[in-house]
Amino acid sequence: MAILTLTINGEHVSGKDDESLLDIARQHDVHIPTLCHLDGLSDVGACRLCLVEVEGQSKLFPACTTKPQEGMVIRTDTERLKKYRRTIIELLASEGNHQCAVCVVNNHCELQNLAYDVDLQYVRFPYLYPKKELDATHEDFVIDRNRCVLCTRCVRVCHEVEGAHTWDIAGRGIDCTIIADMNQPWGTSASCTSCGKCVRVCPTGALFEKGQTVAEMEKQRDFLKYIVHARQKREWVAEQIEEE
């Protein structure tokens, strides 16, 4: 492990070589919007919201999966980046069926908050109104694919933390969809342990507890840090996590 120095938005900062640009930015109070990233899960760079500019490079880099290099000069808030982030949110909004007014996570939704963050004023793209499946076959939980943004947090938490690997992705491009086991009703899944981690990490109302009503569901995601810390460090300390 080595300490590197780099520049973020004109400020000189330092970070470890095994950290991501996102980690380093956050340590220095630089806010970069994220959606697929969640502390405690591996990063896949799927949502592209955390793209940053690196001087001397024409392409953009996702901050969550990019490692620092000595002398890197990074910008996180240029007009170009802001425009791209807005566009990403617009595309997400137009690609699903997001009806905030009657959604279980209304007012507690990461997608909704991001729309505010990027100052989403208007969706320029035509709404696709895709026909998506709502699967309520599980005893305790529901997956409403109308609200899914394919961040794959559920896939990762199920595989990496719970170890069940119930969730996966099927299809390509616009047809991508989250499936349980061999693309079967969730309630019939043999691998699902009904632990509920996927529900808690889901950023939108795509995964929720059965019986929840409009604007009622608030997801607590801190449990993940605690579990991951306990597993890696063999320490079961809630306090320490809270302090962080």
Binding site: V102, A136, T213, V214
Partner: peptide, 14 residues
């Protein structure tokens, strides 16, 4: 149609 029964009060009150 296609929505969950639990959501109905929130939808129909509109």
């Amino acid at each position: 149609e296609g929505r969950l029964m639990w959501e109905m009060p929130g939808i129909t009150s509109r």
